[in-house]
Design a protein around this nucleic acid. Structure first.
Lengths: 137, 137
DNA sequence: CCTATAATGAAACACGGTCTCAATGAGAAC
DNA sequence: GTTCTCATTGAGACCGTGTTTCATTATAGG
């Protein structure tokens, strides 16, 4: 069965080339928060002649298709994450560490905003900022 | 009365110089989401000989003091915002527009996480991503 | 007023990301 | 399968953001 990202690229009318497949595979398999530079490095391991411009072009394409989304992750800088669903972090001012959590209480608010503003919501990000256990006291 | 940011800089043991005051004034007055480059431009209007390095050093200082905080705002890239309190955005995949809203339902969750993880929470960011009214249909 | 030293601007530097352009190859038409 | 077209590609020049270095300046405390 075809990878879901590849399907979305193709059904949006874009060609499914080996360079693009390498980038898609990296983003799909890692399911992590990678920087574009890390995506480049990993995708070049799959398809060595891959150029920087192609990676950035593919990322831009995927962002426009709503498949991935950039988030700014503290000290790591800009990273990519899957666009669907929620992401929840606690970030420490001092050491920059990122703690993920699962609980989320924004479901109702999401519904209400979507309706009131006629906005198709596909994902969300909830981050708390402060000082972690190790950095205060 | 002294501007609150200036006070925090001084009471943390840092000198309050004219270049720093220019940067503080820009961040304090605009109460917007400015990029570092925009801060530089506006602060140079106040203190023309201001150098780029000083702006970046001052921003880093303020981030470490927990006064401002970087956020990644869709197409605008990395911007600065006041660290305290909450910030709430709806961001469109297609056109990158940012809509702010006020309602927020994360207060209880904030309390609970702070207690459970022993984390001093000072602010938060809640963003929804999707397609705005003008960009779908 | 003097002094120690934090803070500064200029300039070189590093790097991420964009753009241009000629070459390539995917996929449609037949 | 063959041909054609045009999206896609990699190389490399380019640009702007952010960092580092270093000699100079000026703040705040004594």
């Amino acid at each position: 069965m075809m990878q879901p990202m590849a399907k979305r690229v193709q059904s949006a009318g874009f060609k499914l080339t080996p360079p693009r497949q390498a980038v898609l595979q990296v983003l799909e398999e890692s399911r992590e928060h990678l920087t574009p530079a890390e995506v480049l490095a990993r995708a070049q391991a799959i398809y060595p002649s891959l150029g920087r411009a192609t990676v950035y072009r593919t990322i831009e394409l995927l962002i426009n298709l709503g498949v991935v989304r950039p988030i700014f992750l503290g000290a790591r800088g800009m990273c990519l994450t899957l666009a669907e669903g929620g992401h929840h972090h606690l970030i420490c001012f001092e050491c920059g560490s990122v703690i993920e959590f699962e609980e989320c209480t924004v479901g109702e608010l999401e519904q209400e905003l979507a309706q009131r503003l006629n906005f198709q919501i596909r994902g969300h990000l909830l981050e708390f900022y402060g000082v972690c256990e190790r950095c205060h006291d």
